Simulated assay, not measured.
Amino acid sequence: MNLTDLALPWMHDAPFIEQWHIDKTHIDHYQHVNNVAYLTQLEKLAWAHSNALGLHFSDYQSLNRGMVIKRHELNYHLPTYLGDSLYCATWIVHCDSKLTLKRQFQFICPKRMKTVFDAVTTFVCVSLDTGAPKRMPAQFTEAYGKACIHVEQPQ
């Protein structure tokens, strides 16, 4: 089954989706998924989506540019547990084709048909060798700009 064909309550159309199987490495002392595990999954999902758009870290290196995190907004709605499987989605909801883009994330537990986690991450384009903000190269604006679903985010 194609993950995008799932009839789940996504916040936007056309999500990029991966499945996440919760194992014991994700569990904390409260016996649910640790906050850091969600953050790690955000990073993996964002990279998988960028790779699917045709951008790989080797491209970042050859262009001397990277999209680095400026801000995370994380919302934990319901706990998840050992053995759960989550469907994790991301969308690019803003790309100014200059310096910044925003990704939205939503993780759904299909057993409950509920969102257990969502987030918005703001990225800034920087020079890899100096860390200073730098304009996005054409490859970034083409890939990320085309993928952007143009959702207005509250300021």
Rank of each mutant, 00 (worst) to 15 (best):
Q31W: 10
H32E: 07
H32A: 00
N34K: 06
V36W: 00
V36D: 10
A37Q: 13
Y38I: 07
Y38R: 00
L39P: 01
T40Q: 14
T40E: 12
T40G: 02
Q41F: 02
L42G: 02
K44H: 15
A46L: 11
W47T: 07
A48T: 08
S50W: 12
S50E: 10
N51F: 14
N51C: 01
L53H: 07
L53I: 01
L53S: 06
L55F: 10
H56Y: 15
D59A: 02
Y60F: 14
Y60C: 12
Y60W: 15
Q61C: 09
S62A: 13
N64P: 09
N64C: 05
N64T: 04
R65Y: 04
G66A: 11
K70W: 01
K70S: 11
R71Y: 13
H72D: 14
E73Q: 15
L74V: 11
N75L: 00
N75I: 05
Y76V: 03
H77R: 12
P79Q: 07
P79V: 09
P79R: 00
T80H: 01
T80W: 00
Y81I: 02
Y81E: 02
D84G: 06
D84M: 09
D84N: 15
S85Y: 11
S85N: 07
L86F: 05
L86V: 05
L86E: 11
Y87D: 03
Y87R: 12
A89Q: 13
T90L: 01
T90V: 04
W91P: 05
I92V: 14
V93F: 05
V93H: 04
C95S: 09
D96T: 11
D96M: 05
L99G: 02
L99W: 11
L101P: 01
L101D: 01
K102Y: 06
R103V: 04
R103I: 00
F107L: 06
F107H: 13
C109H: 15
P110A: 03
P110L: 01
K111N: 14
K111T: 08
R112E: 15
T115P: 02
D118K: 04
A119G: 12
A119M: 03
V120M: 00
V120I: 15
T121F: 06
T121C: 07
T121G: 05
T122P: 02
T122Y: 00
T122F: 04
F123R: 01
F123D: 08
V124S: 04
V124A: 12
C125M: 03
V126C: 09
S127Y: 09
L128H: 09
L128Q: 13
L128E: 08
L128M: 14
L128F: 10
L128P: 08
L128D: 03
D129W: 05
D129M: 06
T130V: 02
T130N: 06
T130G: 04
G131T: 13
G131E: 14
G131N: 10
K134Q: 14
K134W: 12
M136K: 05
M136W: 00
P137M: 06
A138G: 08
F140L: 09
F140T: 03
F140E: 08
